[in-house]
């Protein structure tokens, strides 16, 4: 199988998520202002910063341990639907990694799919509801397809990040059907979903670190 992802790389992924969210914090907050209360960036930044505090990965010996730490820290710190949904996403990825010390591309793709299922279980989102799942679902499919087609993990993750960004852009034309933004109905049309935007950053971070 192409490529392998170990605990150190996953730690680098989490640090890159934290950095990207920090860079885009105002964009995420402003997108959230169109349908929510303008704090999506600040809330995620608080969670990822706590999850990736200096030395956080030193004693982590498996993907499961590391992702469980990130997921439970986000659940404990972030609150709101972002905390529950992102926390569940990483906790389900952790579970799906089993006891492996490192995972291959196919396993990572399964983990991502398990994380996506966690989001569905927690919040009931489907594609088209204008949520973070609109970025994640096409990324999961793109990763699977690319690996099956024999792409390297690096290029498959690149395609997944691009699919996530296209998914993010697809939310501009949608009216929100889940979460706080759904209370505004058609008034959310014309703006990308804040959650879909942060999820696209998470997948972009994966493409630059898990190679």
């Amino acid at each position: 199988m192409n490529g392998r992802v170990d605990t150190a790389q996953l730690a680098a992924w989490m640090c890159e998520c934290s950095r990207l969210i920090d860079v885009h914090i105002d964009t995420l907050n402003d997108l959230d202002a169109t349908g929510g209360d303008a704090d999506h960036g600040s809330n995620l930044e608080r969670g990822f910063t706590a999850a990736t505090a200096s030395g956080f990965s030193e004693k982590m010996t498996s993907p499961r341990e590391l992702l469980k730490h990130v997921g439970s820290t986000i659940v404990d710190i972030v609150g709101g639907s972002s905390g529950a949904v992102y926390g569940t996403f990483f906790l389900r990825m952790a579970l799906a990694s089993g006891e492996l010390k490192w995972v291959d591309g196919a396993t990572f793709a399964q983990m991502l799919r398990a994380g996506g299922q966690g989001i569905i279980d927690r919040g009931g989102a489907q594609v088209g509801d204008k949520t973070l799942y609109d970025s994640l679902a096409p990324a999961i499919a793109a990763l699977d397809n690319a690996l099956v087609a024999g792409e390297t993990l690096a290029s498959a993750l690149q395609m997944a990040a691009e699919a996530a960004e296209a998914g993010r852009d697809s939310t501009v034309a949608l009216a929100a059907r889940k979460g706080r933004a759904s209370y505004l109905g058609d008034r959310t049309i014309g703006y990308a979903d804040a959650g879909a935007t942060s999820m696209a950053l998470v997948l972009r971070a994966a493409a630059t670190t898990l190679i």
Binding site: D39, N43, V75, D76, V78, G79, G80, G83
Partner: peptide
């Protein structure tokens, strides 16, 4: 009480 306009956490 959660953060401002953000629900509390499970803990």
């Amino acid at each position: 009480p959660g953060e401002i306009f953000t629900s509390p956490v499970p803990k």
